[in-house]
Design a protein around this nucleic acid. Structure first.
Lengths: 253, 253
DNA sequence: ATTGATAGTGTATAATTGACACAAGAGTAA
DNA sequence: TTACTCTTGTGTCAATTATACACTATCAAT
């Protein structure tokens, strides 16, 4: 919770710099130890969490704003970002109204406005991220997708929609470049797919299909050190990967 | 072109009723005589056309706003609407700035603001639509997708994106219920698909696949009157159609 | 060397897709 | 009436793709 002065300062600056009524919320997916993770922020002195988000500068392209917001939370540049939906229920920010309504008259209070929020989802390499809390949060941390805390506002809906979209995308586009480290083994990649889809896949068929897409390069040397047979290392063929991203995998018609 | 007074009135009302900086633009697809059509408006005394669009009331859900806007242009209720992208380049409304900048000081002028526009596409039965121009247009009419006029602002981009999205959707969802009349023949439905995809399809394989989806009911009586073999009439099985819409056709994984 | 766990590869079968040909019905013109 | 033409309905074969499943190889620990 902010002090009254902090709130007023924030609101004054926001009104001056940001487009009113519009916000951006990002669902940042990461993958670690076989689990799909989401980057969340925890409200100061409260139990609830929320998605990293922010506002758009008055002359800033949407995509740039999303980049900027995520750079602040993750330290990362050039994140894979996908706009997936605008959430605009007039009631969606009611909680904000309640929260701050006594501290500042509605006219001056940035948060009593209605906000449409543009939903982005991001895929990032878990290990590259340095989570950083924002002004309203005590914590910024990865949370397990299977063990989510209570989320503020409509952020649970936004998260679910992002996940649905990601799963759909899996059917006609490659995924993984942004979620895996540079080099990885086929079983590791399979685990990613299984985690996203929440479903077991056949090892052999997965490999055949994946290789069939022609977006993987196999490195000469297998990974050593494990207690078992050394798996081959793969990396994505960026050129083909990019092409598959824009053209999609299977025509359908 | 509006008179100065008309413009001022419009702007005053807009500021009072609408959310600033946000607009909605709709790409309305129709199908007629084997051609895919788009509903467009023509600016008064000018050659350029633009997409039906409008603004959002301060307490109105986005979807409702899109419905309202389309109701005004087409006379139709309960249109199939799909939000597909927000267009928010800061430069995208430059034309507006130019157009009205001399008529009204920027502070009072609704149109000199930056607008993010939420893109919707709609699929409608061509025959049901009664095109009605808006305040800024002389004409509202169906235009052939293969013979598009110059479009204002970034509306050409919006239209293209809508079409790409529609084509993609064709691969994992049923389409047609909103574009075809109640009853139709298989060749007619095929023509719709061919038109959207801009590609010839095999008659027999199309039929097999289409029937395989299980979303069609075949009527007892074939259509009479043609100079050739009477084709069967089909209609959509609404229940299965709806299910296919939400679940999609093919899993992929 | 033996064992246990994991990785790599192959193959038989079923299902789906794609290409194609023929039969049937409805009007038309001799 | 009959032959003709155009369009629609349906079947079938081959090729491709998906699915299920089993065996072999390799590394580390004992």
């Amino acid at each position: 919770m902010l002090t009254k002065k902090e709130l007023k300062d924030y609101c004054d600056k926001a009104r001056e710099n940001f487009l009113p009524h519009i916000s951006i919320d990002c669902v940042v997916f990461g993958f670690h130890e076989g689990l799909l993770k989401v980057l969340l922020l925890k409200v100061k002195n409260e139990g609830e969490w929320y998605l990293p988000g922010g506002f758009m500068l008055k002359a800033e392209p949407i995509e740039k704003a999303a980049d900027r917001i995520l750079k602040e939370r993750t330290g990362l540049d050039k994140i894979f970002l996908q706009q997936f939906q605008v959430f605009g229920d007039p009631e969606r920010s009611k909680e904000h109204f309640e929260m701050y309504k006594d501290m500042l008259p509605a006219k001056e209070n940035w948060f009593t406005n209605r906000f449409l929020t543009i939903g982005y989802y991001a895929l990032v390499d878990f290990c590259d991220v340095t989570p950083a809390p924002d002004q309203f949060s005590a914590t910024c941390a990865w949370r397990d997708l299977n063990d989510l805390p209570e989320l503020k506002l409509d952020h649970a809906l936004i998260l679910k929609t992002a996940l649905d979209t990601l799963r759909l995308q899996l059917n006609y586009q490659p995924i993984g470049y942004n979620l895996m480290p540079k080099e990885f083994t086929m079983p590791e990649l399979q685990k990613l797919y299984e985690t996203i889809l929440d479903k077991k896949l056949d090892r052999r068929n997965f490999q055949r299909r994946m290789l069939g897409f022609g977006i993987l390069n196999r490195s000469e040397k297998p990974r050593k050190g494990g207690a078992h047979k050394a798996p081959y290392l793969y990396s994505f063929d960026l050129e083909n990967y990019q092409a598959a991203l824009t053209e999609g995998f299977k025509g359908g018609w």
